[in-house]
Design a protein around this nucleic acid. Structure first.
Lengths: 366, 366
DNA sequence: AAACTCCCCGGAAACGTTTACAAGTCAGGA
DNA sequence: TCCTGACTTGTAAACGTTTCCGGGGAGTTT
């Protein structure tokens, strides 16, 4: 015969049983009081008192098992050191917090194993939903995403037939904005420092760069193209190699980390920016504004993408039967001192605004 | 009479009951097979098959309720945009991953409410342990930390009597290293751009700065001290104010974000760094090496602190009865181009090493 | 052939919470 | 006085998993 357990759990922590026993009421009454629903004045007093005395704190796991929700949303990004993800995270955080939930972040390091392992672990009910921004998409990603027990929203490109909510931008168009800007400023030998071609963003930027040059009738010179990873050190090294063998009058970099690395190399080698070499980054992160001179950068709308992704996720959690949705955020170009000789002067005047139009236009920020 | 439930859970997802029924075995057998312990060849086959057919994925919440552990570790930091936390996070991640657990990060924004709410939510069993690096310590922090149901390790200063594992550095000594270095280089009018004095690091750095000046017999000139928050924009603005009313020959900044902001202001106002104004940051983050010229910076051992904090946490999870421990990591100074006129030249030579000695010494990185 | 060991299996309890349901109390109105 | 309704309370089931325990079958040893 199952004697009622009046003692705390094995690890010594009080449970609702402990509180109920101490207050001399049933666990149902104790639970009700602790959740603020019902109870006579006397019962409420006794339960509150007992809870305080034993230092009761509810077990969220047990509560979640019962309620089928945890109130947590996960965000998985490849590189948390990249400011573009920080910006995205802040936008997501704002939306998530306004729904009374909490955001937790996981850095995957861009490794396939880590990302799918994450999906398997966190998405198995530890969180109510998940936003993931994978840098590569493999079959195992695909399988893990569509088989996830909780809603997943993907930020970034994704095979067209994947039945998953998705927010993307057009980074090819973004690259085109930058090339147009440089060509309009009279630059003809445009160098390009890209990330790995086997990543989704790397491939898109490469295709965009070649297409944009073609549109302007400029032949592609492979000596003007360098590839590293998406980090600062790689940008610095890649720019050094590029300068060593070619003589660019402009440099387009696949993200701002690379661009800051390239800037370091340019300044070390006594090239004037923008007079000798114009420099344009991508992502338009705060790093672009920290650099001196401030960097022109292609905004891919990270905040907007993050915000929309979070909104889509909350909508889907509320109604799992919605059809999969796909949204686009248009790129824009923020022009700053690093690419305009007579334009915005290096660091004079008030700090440049971070705003950029959302419809693929070019804005000169002075 | 309780009829056995053979149907999937209310939301339609299969449970171990579904799999067991389909395979024609008991839930005990199904569970054993799914966990890889025991089972005849035939049973294993049938259960595996059934699980695959219905797309079974175990509910981690239910598992955790039973096993009393989630395999998750949380890290709470004030500002995830600050590279010092990124460095710390990477170190923690490495240790945590090697124990087979996963790290989740939460940015609190430095707000008291958010931090204590986090402790109440995540620490109530959603995670097996937590590392927190609060920028302010209030009574409610104190209460939440000591009352936490799961182990908590604090990175940073903490009242001496708090019975909690703690890893700290001596930022006063760190400030002293920087001042000594600047004075030795002949600088006499040393400006100081600090963070808010009601934060733990802000107060410690202020005290350290005044003590170090006193030790060198230099009177404190309040005009040479400015306060903002710990961000880039604040550093830029504070440096502008300081330059406006005083004429420093050196600038010490309370972290690297502030220092990069100050660098921007200095370069905008045509001051040569380091010839006119020597510049030293704190935290020795990658940002210090991205700047041009590269920034001298006081290393407060963020990686080492993160690593130790993670190790302490894992030890405590393994043995909750350990006495509270308190560990120290000594600061050191990385000298780079921003503070040495004849020394390490700006950006020439190979990239500077990130290593700094761990025993409070000064290292010139060339 | 009986006793013993080993393995496999199923029933049932347990983790800590919320909640449906039934039963009880009490006051007020017919 | 009896009925009705509002309110409170306790019992027990449920969330989905792991695991203890005992029963039973097959194989091995005396």
């Amino acid at each position: 015969m199952g004697r009622k357990r009046l003692q705390p759990s094995p690890d010594g922590r009080p449970t609702v049983h402990t509180v109920a026993a101490r207050a001399g009421v049933s666990i149902a009454s104790a639970s009700r009081v602790l959740n603020g629903i019902g109870g006579s004045a006397e019962t409420v007093r006794r339960v509150r008192e007992a809870a305080a005395e034993v230092g009761y704190v509810p077990n969220a796991i047990a509560r979640s098992l019962q309620s089928q929700r945890t109130g947590l949303i996960a965000l998985a990004v490849a590189d948390i050191g990249n400011p573009v993800y920080v910006a995205m995270m802040r936008a997501i955080e704002a939306v998530v917090a306004s729904s009374g939930r909490q955001l937790v972040v996981h850095a995957t390091g861009g490794e396939i194993d880590s990302e799918t392992a994450l999906l398997r672990r966190l998405a198995n009910r530890y969180v109510d939903g998940m936003i993931i921004s994978p840098i590569r998409i493999t079959d195992s990603h695909h399988a893990a995403i569509v088989g996830s027990p909780v809603p997943v929203v993907v930020v970034g490109q994704l095979p067209d037939d994947t039945p998953v909510d998705n927010v993307r931008t057009d980074s090819r168009a973004g690259v085109a904005l930058a090339v147009d800007h440089l060509v309009a400023a009279g630059r003809q030998r445009i160098g390009f420092v890209n990330g790995p071609l086997d990543t989704v963003p790397g491939a898109a930027r490469d295709a965009g760069f070649r297409a944009a040059l073609a549109r302007h009738g400029i032949p592609v010179d492979e000596d003007l193209i360098e590839i590293g990873d998406f980090q600062y050190a790689a940008g610095r090294a890649a720019a050094a190699r590029l300068l060593d063998r070619a003589d660019p009058d402009a440099l387009l970099c696949a993200n701002d980390l690379i661009a800051v690395g390239a800037l370091h190399t340019l300044l070390s080698e006594q090239r004037r920016v923008p007079e000798d070499v114009a420099l344009v980054g991508m992502d338009d992160t705060e790093l672009a504004q920290m650099a001196f001179p401030q960097l022109s950068s292609v905004s891919l709308g990270s905040e907007a993408r993050g915000r929309r992704a979070a909104e889509l996720l909350l909508e889907r959690i509320a109604d799992p039967d919605l059809p999969p949705r796909r949204e686009h955020v248009a790129p824009s170009l923020a022009v700053r001192a690093s690419s305009t000789v007579g334009g915005p002067t290096a660091g004079n005047g008030p700090p440049a605004s971070r705003r950029a139009p959302a419809d693929g236009t070019v804005e000169v920020i002075s």
